[in-house]
């Protein structure tokens, strides 16, 4: 089963505002792009047309691995707003 399908099994309450803000200037000069590998939800991707780093916040498991791995400081990272984001039924 691919990771998108797995995320589809989870309960998310989707906020209109993103809780992770990416500093594109930092990402442009970043050759590491660790976020692409450490995110268990595979939520980071580089937009083929614009070359910008994108994150799909609505599937975020709020583990914070990207926050720890982005040593270049491109992420303004917060948890999803109260009452939004992942709501684990098993945990």
């Amino acid at each position: 089963m691919n990771v998108e399908t797995k995320l589809g099994l989870d309960v998310f309450k989707i906020d209109k505002d993103a809780h992770i803000i990416i500093d594109q200037e930092i990402c442009r000069s970043c050759e590491d792009k660790f976020c692409l590998y450490v995110c268990p939800g595979k939520l980071y991707s580089v937009n083929r047309e614009t070359g910008e780093m994108e994150v799909e916040c609505s599937g975020c498991l709020e583990c914070g691995s990207c926050r720890i791995a982005c040593i270049h400081g491109a992420l303004e990272w917060n948890y999803a707003r109260g009452g939004f984001g992942i709501q684990y039924r098993f945990g």
């Binding site: 099994l9 989870d10 498991l61 583990c63 691995s65 684990y88 039924r89 098993f90 945990g91």
Partner: peptide, 9 residues
């Protein structure tokens, strides 16, 4: 049957 996918640091 997978019923949930989760992650944690």
């Amino acid at each position: 049957e997978i019923v949930e996918y989760s992650a944690h640091a």
